[in-house]
């Protein structure tokens, strides 16, 4: 029995590391965007478009890292579109976000057709489990560099928002556009830049999906991960460090269903497979009830105002 528990725990650890990276990158991108006072629901589109562009670039050039860069750029362009349209008067950022989600996935499906079949070079993992003789531990600790990119980015964002002049400007635009204007800051330009940078991160999240795990381009690749990551941001209360924990929790809960079945605990797999979604709902209910969450939300967000 303790063996079985160990297996499930290892699988959840492995799952947390394997599956969390796209959640983390999208959540960080959304955090940055929302900190500047806009909601970009279109990051699911960035994720899918990034996945396709990364796979196509890696296949065409033979370099997966070039694919990662291309995915980021594609995500940046897409989100810059969102940022640009939202600065026009009387535009609702949520509606534009939904439009961009469909645009991103639509573009990816349209241009991605020729890349479903071929196999592109993928990103390598770093084997951190070499110290252990247990193959399961070794497997769980095979970590993709992008995971560390995500971790580093989370710390950097947290520090930047808290301690730098840029961070202050972004937070100010997000909390009170009027104050920012009084300070002589161009609110629209800050939001455009923050949204674009957020789109870049989400695009890289897509590259992780197609170039590492599960590691191929198909149209059902994301299955809504970009949308769930947006929900994660509220759970993480716009704090990049808490985004890391939230993403890890989601990854682990996603691994729960298959891991329990693999040790023979197979009754009720529909319930366990739904764990990440149930978790999203529970989290949303809990965090929406919390007064503190409302307090921490950037004041300029259209859902808060």
């Amino acid at each position: 029995m303790s063996d079985a528990i160990f297996m499930v725990l290892m699988a959840m650890l492995g799952g947390a590391i394997r599956v969390s990276t796209p959640f983390l990158l999208v959540a960080l991108g959304e955090t940055l965007t929302e900190k500047s006072g806009r909601i970009n629901l279109g990051l699911e589109g960035n994720l899918v478009l990034g996945a396709m562009i990364a796979y196509a670039t890696s296949y065409s050039t033979g370099s997966p890292w070039l694919g990662v860069l291309a995915a980021g750029l594609a995500g940046m362009v897409l989100s810059a579109g969102h940022g640009w349209i939202c600065k026009l008067p009387k535009v609702n950022d949520i509606a534009v976000g939904i439009a961009f989600m469909n645009l991103g996935t639509g573009l990816a499906f349209f241009f991605g057709k020729p890349f479903i079949q071929p196999t592109a070079p993928r990103l390598d993992a770093i084997a951190l489990g070499a110290w252990s003789s247990n193959p399961q531990v070794q497997q769980a600790l095979k970590v993709n560099p992008l995971f560390f990119v995500g971790l580093g980015l989370a710390v950097l964002l947290w520090w930047m928002l808290k301690n730098t002049r840029w961070g202050l400007i972004i937070r100010m635009t997000g909390d009170s556009a009027a104050s920012a204007r009084a300070m002589g800051v161009s609110v629209d330009r800050v939001r455009l830049l923050a949204t674009s940078a957020g789109g870049f991160f989400a695009g890289i999240g897509g590259a992780f999906l197609s170039l590492y795990y599960p590691g191929s381009w198909s149209e059902s690749l994301s299955s809504g991960q970009g949308l769930m990551a947006v929900a994660l941001v509220i759970f993480a209360r716009w704090n990049p460090i808490r985004c890391v924990w939230a993403a890890l929790l989601f990854g682990a809960s996603g691994a729960l269903g298959p891991a329990l079945q693999s040790i023979g605990f197979s009754k009720g797999y529909y319930f366990f497979n739904a764990a990440p979604y149930i978790l999203t709902l529970v989290i949303m209910v809990l965090s929406a009830r919390s007064q503190k969450a409302a307090h921490e939300a950037p004041g300029e967000l259209s859902i808060v105002k």
Binding site: P214, L221, P258, S262
Partner: peptide, 25 residues
């Protein structure tokens, strides 16, 4: 034969997880 049901006809991430779980078993 050890079987894992994913519950969905196409869900690449969970299929990869299931493959890893079976190999770990």
């Amino acid at each position: 034969v050890q079987v894992i049901f994913t519950g969905s006809w196409s869900m690449p991430v969970r299929e990869a997880e299931a493959t890893n779980a079976l190999i770990d078993a």
